[in-house]
Design a protein around this nucleic acid. Structure first.
Length: 496
RNA sequence: GUCCCCGUCGUCUAGAGGCCCAGGACGCUGGCCUUUCAAGCCGGUAACACGGGUUCGAAUCCCGUCGGGGACACCA
């Protein structure tokens, strides 16, 4: 879409983009685990590309020498894969736009920066970090915003004692009056006067680009048609736009996504907010369907729809429906969604995902025929796989620990007599099934002329150790005949 | 401090001038169901930040105030 205000000059995109398949990218910096905000950015880009028949690319912005690590690259790749956000091009999927690691593209950056210097649109700056730091501190002291003064702007040769190799390269911001604008797909037209911008550093002395530079060069060379990233980047798009202009390149479209906030209303950060870690949720037993569902609702909506499948996301998503207000992380809703997905996914799928959680508790249940019925019984009362595994524990171990309070309430006097009767009829059952067990409970309570609870609760406590479990017939089925009878016997003898 | 963005129930949101004395969802809560716990179903609680305009009419448009967040690096 062209800028809505014809009076705004220098506004991008200057003309309607051609009808072409979108090329979008997710460009994280590998300085830690996959961040939940990054995951959402990846999701939006992924959905957009898929929905409109485009291409979703992954690029590693590993130019922070101090913090980038191979482990982080792997962590991000793993996180995206776990979420099912497969990229069409990028690490592991080489294409004609590679390499996809910025540190492997240094020659490209050098070439373009040299060209800009030759054209008088960039210059070498010999100021030392210490110098700059002191100037910045001074500005701060006087409570004014620091802007690079232009010290080396017109230098033709290095000053005494400095060498060309020591210089960083700065972008030469136009000195005349003017403004840059762009029409953001979610925010609308945003404008900034030149006077707010300064001669920013594009390239370090060692040839490693800074964000604003590497990003623009790559996005253009990789034919990116739309850049979607977090709102923390809106201010950096102005210097980037100036670069596109200096290079004579048409900028892509932009869509800046609302931020995800922590409980303290501040941007979700790795430092302060553990929930920012995508894989933490995996470890906690949240499923990717639920996490994606939760995260897409932060900033995007489709009428009153809450539980949304990937197919529906693919059918409905568009940046036009992305809101512009930041959203607060709501763990309760995530948990609710996870349970909704327990009930939507095939039991076999949930069972498969439950296995590792059981294994972590020393239970190897792979291939166990009770897994699916177990999921069916437990999905109504668990919100995470971890929680499900914890309650599933009693169906796999032999014997059970009786909860003191439960036993004191349900395993005494008359209750024990009823339990003995139940035990007898249970043992005589020709076939062990949910219905048969339920029938026994019903028969015993009718014979004794008491409510079913009088019979079911003691039995439940004897078999599970506690007062809560799925339906009594279901519970005994899951425990199994022999084990159930053993537990009842041990409850019976306990107080005898 | 400067610049940028934002401002509907506690939270996520629907809402593109009359359909809204504002709808849905999570949470909380009352009830039903019931052998327990859940789940489910029915009901309740609770919001257009404030002040000015524009208009026959504003949650929706404009201005201001206040509030929140973000950015101000040889991080990304």
């Amino acid at each position: 879409m062209a800028c809505v205000d014809p009076l705004v000059s220098n506004c991008y995109p200057a003309r309607l983009p051609m009808a072409q398949a979108p090329r979008v990218r997710f460009a994280p910096s590998p300085t830690g685990y996959l961040h939940i905000g990054g995951a959402r950015t990846a999701l939006f880009n992924y959905l957009y590309a898929r929905r409109f028949g485009g291409n979703f690319m992954l690029r590693m912005e590993d130019t922070d020498q101090e913090r980038s690590t191979p482990e982080s690259v792997q962590a991000i790749l793993d996180g995206l894969k776990w979420l099912g956000l497969e990229w069409d091009e990028g690490p592991g999927k080489e294409g004609k736009y590679g390499p996809y690691f910025q540190t492997q593209r240094l020659d490209t950056y050098r070439t373009h920066s040299e060209r800009l210097i030759a054209e008088g649109k960039a210059f070498r700056c010999y100021c030392t970090r210490e110098d700059l730091e002191a100037r910045r501190a001074a500005a701060e002291k006087e409570k004014r915003a620091y802007k690079y003064e232009g010290t080396c702007r017109e230098l033709k040769a290095p000053p005494a004692g400095r060498r060309v190799e020591d210089a960083v390269i700065r972008f030469k911001m136009p000195r005349e009056e003017g403004t840059v604008s762009f029409n953001d797909k979610v925010l609308g037209v945003i404008t900034k006067p030149y006077s707010d911008l300064d001669d920013w550093v594009m390239l370090r002395a060692d040839g490693i680009p800074l964000y604003n530079f590497g990003c623009v060069i790559d996005d253009h060379l990789m034919d990116i048609t739309l850049v979607s990233r977090g709102q923390e980047h809106v201010n950096s798009t102005f210097p980037q736009l100036m670069l596109y202009q200096a290079l004579g390149w048409a900028p892509p479209e932009f869509a800046h996504l609302p931020l995800i906030l922590g409980p303290d209303r501040e941007k979700l950060s790795k430092r302060k907010h553990p929930e920012a870690d995508v894989m933490l949720h995996k470890r906690n037993g949240i499923m990717p369907e639920a996490l994606l569902n939760f995260v897409i609702r932060l900033g995007w909506g489709h009428g009153n729809d809450e539980v949304i499948s990937r197919e529906q996301m693919l059918e409905w998503f568009d940046f036009a429906d992305v809101g512009s207000t930041s959203g607060v992380w709501n763990p309760e809703k995530l948990l609710w969604l996870n349970q909704q997905w327990f009930k939507l996914l095939p039991p076999a799928t949930v069972a498969e995902r439950l296995v590792p959680f059981l294994e972590a508790k020393g239970i190897s249940a792979r291939g166990d025929a009770r897994l699916e019925p177990l999921v069916l019984a437990l999905r109504e009362r668990a919100r995470t796989l971890e929680e499900m595994a914890t309650t599933a524990t009693i169906y796999f171990r032999s014997g059970v620990t009786l909860d003191e309070k439960a036993a004191a309430k349900h395993l005494t006097g008359d209750s024990l007599k009823l339990l003995a009767q139940v035990r007898e009829q249970l043992a005589a059952l020709p076939a062990w099934s949910t219905d048969a067990v339920d029938a026994v409970v019903k028969a015993v309570s009718e014979q004794a002329a008491v409510g079913m609870g009088k019979v079911a609760q003691p039995l439940r406590v004897a078999v599970t150790g506690n007062t809560t479990s799925p339906g009594i017939g279901e519970t005994l089925m899951l425990v199994g005949r022999d084990e159930a009878l053993r537990r009842i016997d041990s409850a019976l003898t306990r107080t005898a």
